[in-house]
Design a protein around this nucleic acid. Structure first.
Lengths: 192, 192
DNA sequence: ATTATTATTTATCAAATGTAAAAGGATAGG
DNA sequence: CCTATCCTTTTACATTTGATAAATAATAAT
């Protein structure tokens, strides 16, 4: 059972780049399955990000507070690599946390030993380089969306591209994710 | 003279990670110096991004059009790696172009041969992994700024963090960079 | 089931931002 | 030096969005 989840994760990661067998074996050593219940924090705010999570089933969100308001930076569904980039790559504490929006099954990989593996397994470094490149692309596209689209356009875009999120996450989180207030989102949904 | 610019570039790149000497030698082979005059496109809109530019001196911007309006996605000063991420990492044509805001001296590195070098020089792959991680962090931070800060807050933030940009780039480009109209920016600058 | 809690919608008003057009300023070329 | 062009500010007005509070709906806990 646990084996299965980790195998699925390795398969998923292999869609980014096919690392060689010995490298994947070493990687498997670092993989651990875990679960978080809906509403619970997988990682609280204030910690340094030293773990790479792969969401296997469920829904997570990265969030933080601005002026006491809870803001969802991103939603991460099944088959997503979940990290707080600014912290993982800089070694600084993150002002962001990871919380379960649904009961979630994940695989965790401790980052320091993973990065150490890179020295002996360049194919692993390449794999994760491509994983992070993909995340980078997503972030750039989201930036564009926030930079010059109206609130309504952003909502329609989400409806087109990820209609399931609308069903799975509470609207208050979706509102902040889209960079608007709950009230604004409600207005837009009321068609006008 | 040309040698000098390329040496400076290698030095700058080495601040991300110290690749070994043979790797850097191979990298130097791929470096070419170039210049673009103010107002000219270094890369026009519509091309696939296959070149990595390092801005040595001057100011560039990445831009695109939305509904016929020129939008500056980012400014890139001296000591910046300049690529259109969504294109370079996906191989798809970019809707974005790179334009010189000031007369600019740059070094270009052709991406396909660079990526090929990675196979023989893992330390180069690491170097560029770290380069792109740094860019990723910048983008995530910018996302946060656009997601829940007011127009005025975004302007103040730019004033704090990159006051030189205010001097070097026309306000119309700064306005779109900050995700607002020229009129709005003018209002904010008029203090109220 | 009943109550308490949380989420969502609605309403009202104020503030921020966009649109359009005009008026100054600055700059470059002849 | 003068004109033409581009950049920036200003004005007036329309729209969007935010803030606050109250009403309603949904959910969880007992």
């Amino acid at each position: 059972m646990k084996k299965n989840v980790i195998e699925k994760t390795i398969e998923y990661l292999s869609t980014f780049y096919k690392a060689d067998a010995t490298a994947l074996e070493a990687l498997t050593t670092l993989c651990f399955e875990g679960k978080v219940a809906k509403g619970k924090d997988l990682q609280p705010i204030g910690h340094t990000c030293r773990t790479i999570y792969i969401n296997v089933e469920g829904l997570l969100r990265i969030y933080y507070f601005k002026d006491g308001i809870d803001i969802t930076e991103s939603f991460e569904k099944e088959n997503s690599v979940v990290v707080r980039v600014e912290s993982l790559f800089s070694g600084r504490a993150s002002r962001k946390g990871i919380q379960a929006v649904e009961n979630t099954t994940f695989v965790s990989i401790s980052a320091p030993p993973l990065f150490a593996l890179f020295d002996h397994h360049p194919s692993l470094e390449r794999l994760f380089r491509k994983v992070f490149e993909a995340g980078y692309i997503k972030t750039v596209n989201r930036l564009e969306s926030l930079q010059f689209h109206t609130a309504e356009e952003r909502y329609r875009q989400l409806m087109d591209e990820q209609p399931d999120i609308l069903q799975r996450a509470p609207l208050k989180h979706i509102a902040s994710y889209l960079g608007m207030t709950q009230v604004s989102l409600s207005r837009i949904r009321a068609h006008r």
